[in-house]
Design a protein around this nucleic acid. Structure first.
Lengths: 160, 160
DNA sequence: TATTGTTATACTCTATAACTATA
DNA sequence: TATAGTTATAGAGTATAACAATA
């Protein structure tokens, strides 16, 4: 009954990029199964969580932080706004931008979702000791491009 | 000119799942930029590479190995077949299955693509020493669900 | 001129489910 | 009954590019 599969000759796990991707897909699947939520719900929960920590943050700042494209962020925010989970405001200092704040409804939605996120999260370090898990965290953080060095590759690149 | 961004209060990098995802997206972007290829080309190159290592492999086995859904794999294979990069065959032992083999055209395509993949791959361990990179590889491998333990969560779940 | 956000399009990948043909 | 692959549809995310309002 187990799909044990013929062995596959592969050198891909010798490549950090492939391995990183496979491990992420693998862990992500475990996460969502355990949390019993869809990818969309997770994105939403994450956004609400960060809004609680950063009330009044600009949506573009949030997008860059989460590596979400601006165009996509617009649609996500429209969805949250349509369900009255966030309040939008246009700050006087820069009237091009949009700032976001949780509504009480948004707070409640977050309170309902976040425990499931934590449950899914607990499933991720499967097979690792706490020490290994911590070490992995440190290495991944070191792998990430520091904010500030990250600009052009992220969005746009206009040439009219 | 650098989008240096207001700092974002966040505890997400304390969660291995989030961090894994962000690091993967980050590294993947660097990979694709350096390799100068699209995500689709990378998927294709990876498939062709594994076909060279495993001539005559069944497409479903390949799909599970790469965490690609069966339905999606069908479309990818149709694309490769349409461009004559692979040959499809139905083995007598199990006439439900489809086995794949590289054509000479497929070999040539792989030879053209693979060096770019390696160039992208070299960009991934940015900021890590070779020792840290190797350690990260070992931890990620340990994090992955071993083949054999991975079945139901991967596909289907029928209840007619 | 550059930046913030919006709109729109196309493509990739995921998630399901129903279907066929084999086993 | 279960498995391998196919088809079809919906949702999520990416990649682009053009646009308006503002800086």
């Amino acid at each position: 009954m187990t799909t044990d599969d013929a062995p596959v000759r592969s050198d891909l796990d010798g490549h950090l990029g492939f391995l990183l991707r496979l491990a992420q897909v693998d862990a992500f699947g475990r996460f969502l199964t355990r949390a019993a939520m869809s990818q969309g719900q997770l994105t939403e929960a994450t956004l609400l969580h960060l809004l609680r920590l950063n009330p009044g943050i600009r949506q573009g700042v949030l997008a860059r932080h989460l590596r979400i494209k601006r165009a996509h962020m617009t649609k996500i925010v429209q969805g949250l706004d349509g369900r009255r989970l966030v309040d939008l405001a246009i700050p006087a200092e820069d009237r091009r931008s949009v700032t976001l704040t949780l509504t009480p409804t948004g707070e409640a939605a977050l309170d309902a979702l976040w425990p499931r996120v934590l449950r899914g999260e607990a499933e991720v370090p499967q097979g690792l000791t706490p020490e290994e898990s911590e070490l992995l965290r440190r290495l991944l953080q070191k792998l990430m491009t520091p904010p500030g060095a990250r600009d052009q590759a992220q969005d746009d690149g206009h040439e009219p």
